[in-house]
Design a protein around this nucleic acid. Structure first.
Lengths: 159, 159
DNA sequence: TCTTTCTTTAGAATTATTCTAATCTATTGA
DNA sequence: TCAATAGATTAGAATAATTCTAAAGAAAGA
C-alpha cells in the first residue's frame, strides 16, 4: 500500500503552505487519501460516498441502495453521480462489479480474491473467501484470448 | 429421454383417427414433440422458434438476436413473444439463462453440465464442457440455504 | 485570485424488459 | 367436424435501470 507515502507527501505540501485547520483535517481523512491515491479528485460527493461505502466492513451494494443510503445520511448526491462514482471507483480498482442478477448491478467493496453465494430470492450476496475455493481444469482459452478473472457464483435457495 | 414414448403415443392417437397428412407431418416434427414433452402447446411461433434455437448445435442467444433471426427467416413473431418464449422454455428446462453481462441476458440451448468463457469485448460466450472444470472447497452455505447450482465464468480478453 | 479542467446535476433520453387489453388459435368434448 | 374455452400472441404502452446532455459548480495549478 502506498497510502502512507501519499499522505506524507501531501502533508508536506499543505503544511508548508500553512493552510487552515479545516483543510488539514479534510485532507487527513482516509477517504480523501484513498481517492487521491486512486487518481480521483476528492470532491465532496466522492468523499462522502467513499465514507458510506468503506466505513464499515465489506458491502455489496446497488446504485439505488447507495443513493438511498446517501439520502438517509443527509448526503446530497444525484443518482447520476452515484452511477458515475460507482463506475469510476470500479475503473480505479476501488470496487468490483459483481454480475449475478440480470435485473441489477451489484458493486463489491471487497476487491480481493473471493467468490460469492447468491440468494436469488432475496437479492443477497455472501462472500466466500478466495482461499476456500479452487477451480481446477479450466482449459486453455481459445487462440488470441487470455484469462482475466474467474468468477464463481454459488446459487443458493432457501431450504 | 421420453421423446420416443411421447411420439409413439401421439402417432397411435392421430393415425387411429385418420388425420390428414399435413397434420401428421406437423406432429412428426422434432420441435412439436419437444414442446409437447415439455408441457407446452406447440403453437406456430413456438415451433418456429424451437427450430431456430435448436436446429444447428448449441447456441448462446439474446432475445434481440432471436427476434432478428426470426425476422431474417421470415418467421413472424413479436419481440414480446420472443421474451415470453425464452422464459417459458427456461422454466420448462429447455433453455438455461446465463448471467454474465449486466447489459443483456443470454439464453443457452445447452442445458447440460458446463461452464463458460466470456469475451466481454465481443459479448461472446464459449462453452467449457462440464467434465473439464472442477470447483473444490465450496463451504457449507449459511444455515437455511442449499446449493442450487454453481456457475463458473472465465472472463477472457483479446490478447 | 484567475483560469482551466474536471465534476455534478436535473432532467431528458435510451435500452432492455414487462405489462395490458384485444385478438387469435390449439385443444377438447360432443 | 365444430363450437367452446383455456391459453397464446401481439402492438404498443409502461417500467426500470442506466446513460446522456448541456449548464452550473468546484478543485487544481500558476
Amino acid at each position: 500500500m502506498q497510502d502512507s507515502k501519499v499522505k506524507a507527501a501531501l502533508s508536506a505540501v499543505w503544511i508548508g503552505q500553512a493552510v487552515m485547520a479545516t483543510k488539514i483535517r479534510e485532507v487527513g481523512t482516509a477517504a480523501t487519501e484513498r481517492l487521491r491515491a486512486a487518481g480521483l479528485r476528492p470532491t465532496r460527493q466522492r468523499v462522502e460516498l467513499t465514507g458510506l461505502l468503506f466505513a464499515q466492513g465489506h458491502r455489496h451494494i446497488t446504485a439505488e441502495m447507495l443513493h438511498s443510503d446517501a439520502q438517509a445520511a443527509g448526503v446530497k448526491v444525484s443518482l447520476a453521480t452515484v452511477y458515475n462514482t460507482l463506475h469510476q471507483f470500479t475503473d480505479a480498482g476501488l470496487l468490483r462489479q459483481v454480475v449475478v442478477d440480470a435485473a441489477r448491478s451489484y458493486f463489491d467493496t471487497n476487491t480481493g480474491d473471493h467468490q460469492h453465494f447468491f440468494v436469488e430470492s432475496d437479492g443477497i450476496l455472501i462472500d466466500i473467501p478466495g482461499e476456500h475455493i479452487e477451480v481446477a481444469g479450466v482449459p486453455e482459452p481459445p487462440k488470441g484470448l487470455s484469462v482475466e478473472r474467474i468468477d464463481v457464483v454459488v446459487r443458493v435457495r432457501r431450504r
